[in-house]
């Protein structure tokens, strides 16, 4: 199994802290109504998105979902344009047209996120087909939740990628709940990865709180896809500590505090910090510094976002079509 190099192990912690600090700040801003519209935090799920993205190449692509701040961050996006997007500013990565649920950063291969559950999965399959037709060895990874595995697009996509052996990774971040509906209540299988068998592709369950484990299974599946051996379905068992969408008043009746506390005991940043200390890659001060630096980066991103101008009213009309005609009427 491909094991990450020491500097990569340290970078993983840095990116996980970026994701967490970014999302903690986004939640605060949502409650303060400085961010408009829903915010779906990934706090608790950082190892899944960072472990997976860091196993990819820079020119590989990804599609995300509504809970997707972490994916571009994990792939290496600058934080300033992401935070400015959450605030709806002209300097936002999407010019204020997307917002929290729809970050896209083509500069790092993030093809976009969608608030329509399951909709990003076939788009990733198309990116895989495109890589094959263009003769590159890029792969595309589709991030989605356990809820999306009950959507028709998931099943159509797995079949399409399997029959054509496309370089696609299907990465399920199974946090146990589709909004408020538990996996057990909504899903015919215990492990989403079981569904891979129906499409004759590898299905792998991995501890989603362990960034190294996620990295290893993703790197292996990526190598397989790149070699033309076809897609894989990876399932990271993870958990979101906060609500489905913060600040929307979604009642918490569907899970108990003990369950949340149990998962908090296996915090991905703590687990990875311990690994870095155990392997003498960092001392405690060095590990603390990573957290401080990530928080400072988020502060700088927020300052940039706050200082940025609002988009011009015309901006909504200018991005409808690439070739002119038909817009703005």
């Amino acid at each position: 199994m491909p094991t990450p190099r020491p500097e990569l192990l340290i970078e993983m912690q840095r990116r996980m802290w970026r994701v967490r600090a970014f999302d903690e700040r986004a939640v605060e801003l949502r409650h303060a109504r400085e961010i408009h519209g829903p915010v779906h935090p990934s706090i608790g799920q950082e190892a899944a998105c960072v472990g997976a993205c860091m196993a990819l190449r820079e020119d590989d692509t990804l599609t995300g979902n509504h809970r997707s701040h972490g994916h571009p961050i994990a792939k290496g996006s600058e934080l300033g344009p992401l935070m400015a997007e959450l605030l709806g500013k002209a300097t936002g990565v999407c010019g204020g047209m997307g917002g929290s649920m729809h970050l896209a950063d083509f500069s790092v291969g993030s093809l976009g996120e969608t608030g329509i559950v399951g909709a990003g999965i076939p788009i990733a399959v198309g990116a895989g087909l495109s890589a094959r037709v263009r003769g590159t060895d890029q792969i595309c990874i589709a991030f989605f939740g356990d809820g999306a595995s009950n959507h028709g697009t998931f099943h159509e996509s797995l079949n399409l990628a399997a029959i054509w052996k496309l370089p696609v990774l299907f990465f399920c971040e199974n946090n146990g709940y589709a909004a408020t509906t538990s996996l057990a209540r909504a899903t015919s299988v215990e492990d989403v990865a079981e569904r891979a068998a129906g499409y004759r592709m590898p299905g792998v369950v991995v501890d989603g709180q362990d960034a190294v484990a996620v990295y290893e299974v993703t790197a292996e599946a990526a190598a397989r896809a790149r070699a033309g051996e076809g897609p894989s379905l990876l399932e990271a068992k993870t958990y979101r500590y906060l609500e489905h969408a913060e600040g929307e008043g979604i009642p918490g009746f569907y899970r108990d505090a003990a369950e949340i506390e149990r998962w908090r005991q296996r915090d991905p940043l703590e687990i990875h910090r311990q690994l870095l200390l155990d392997r003498n890659l960092l001392d405690a001060a060095g590990a603390d510094r990573i957290e401080r630096e990530a928080r400072a980066e988020v502060d700088a991103a927020l300052a940039f976002a706050r200082e940025s101008a609002e988009p011009e009213p015309r901006a909504a009309f200018d991005v409808v079509f690439a070739n002119s005609g038909g817009s703005g009427t």
């Binding site: 999407c94 997307g98 976009g112």
Partner: peptide, 8 residues
């Protein structure tokens, strides 16, 4: 195209 601010 619109949602990505013209990136796509």
């Amino acid at each position: 195209r619109a949602m990505t601010g013209g990136q796509a």
